[in-house]
Amino acid sequence: MSKAKQMIKMNKTSMIKVATVTAVILLSGCSSLGVEPWQRDLLAKDEMALTAAPLDAALDDHIYFSKEASSGGRGFGGGGCGCN
């Protein structure tokens, strides 16, 4: 195996390690956040859903997909139209 290939392999391994450690830290950090099931009165409301108005979001995605050069983020990239 050439040195370059070894380097790439090492880089990949260390990237996976970094990603795993980051995920574990994030998840353990997150475990101190949050609420008990009986404290979900506000979060359980429809209007507290991350996408509370899905049709508004779908219509907006269609407009901005057609009129700007960006899409996606909240969900998949959208599309499915010629959009002139």
Binding site: G34, V35, L43, L50, G72, G73, G75, F76
Partner: peptide
């Protein structure tokens, strides 16, 4: 042809607050 990948983390912060982080590749 389009391939979209989407990875998300949603976290309840407290009784009043929720956050979401997404990364998407298209």
């Amino acid at each position: 042809n389009t391939v979209d990948l989407l990875f998300g983390l949603t976290q309840v912060i407290n009784r009043r607050m929720i956050v979401q982080f997404n990364y998407s590749f298209s």
